[in-house]
């Protein structure tokens, strides 16, 4: 998983993982969330999710949630992660506005 540094754009999967973790979730629930919200269009494999969780945890955008002794490990978005998601929302808004203004002419 690499997010485009130049434009600041997140990959769709990164954005969805951040969105899914506004409420704490374990791995399987993240996969289900993405499947549901995209109507099955975007499929995230468990191996890719594992890599993404590690990368996002390293970046400090998400963190482990609660102590999960014997239970499934859960994650939640951090303050920094929320900022990144906000920025992405703004970027997408600008993009749709630009697109609409050109395409509806």
């Amino acid at each position: 998983m690499k997010d485009n540094v130049k434009s600041g754009a997140l990959t769709e999967v990164t954005f969805f993982i951040l969105l899914s973790l506004y409420e704490p979730k374990h791995g399987y629930a993240i996969m289900q969330f993405i499947d549901e919200k995209t109507g099955g269009r975007l499929i995230l494999g468990a191996g890719s999710l594992y890599g993404a969780i590690n990368t996002l945890t390293e970046k400090g955008w998400i963190e482990p949630y609660g102590d999960s002794d014997g239970r499934k490990k859960e994650y939640v978005i951090t303050g920094k992660g929320r900022q990144i998601a906000e920025k992405e929302l703004q970027r997408l808004r600008d993009l749709t506005e630009t697109a609409a203004s050109i395409m509806r002419k």
């Binding site: 998983m1 499929i43 995230l44 468990a46 890599g51 993404a52």
Partner: peptide, 23 residues
């Protein structure tokens, strides 16, 4: 060797392109 219950979808662990490249 990874096993899952068949849900009719293809079983792929690596779905992200960058992740597949790394793999």
């Amino acid at each position: 060797i990874v096993e899952k219950e068949n849900d009719g979808k293809p079983f792929q662990l690596h779905t992200e392109k960058q992740d597949q490249i790394d793999y």
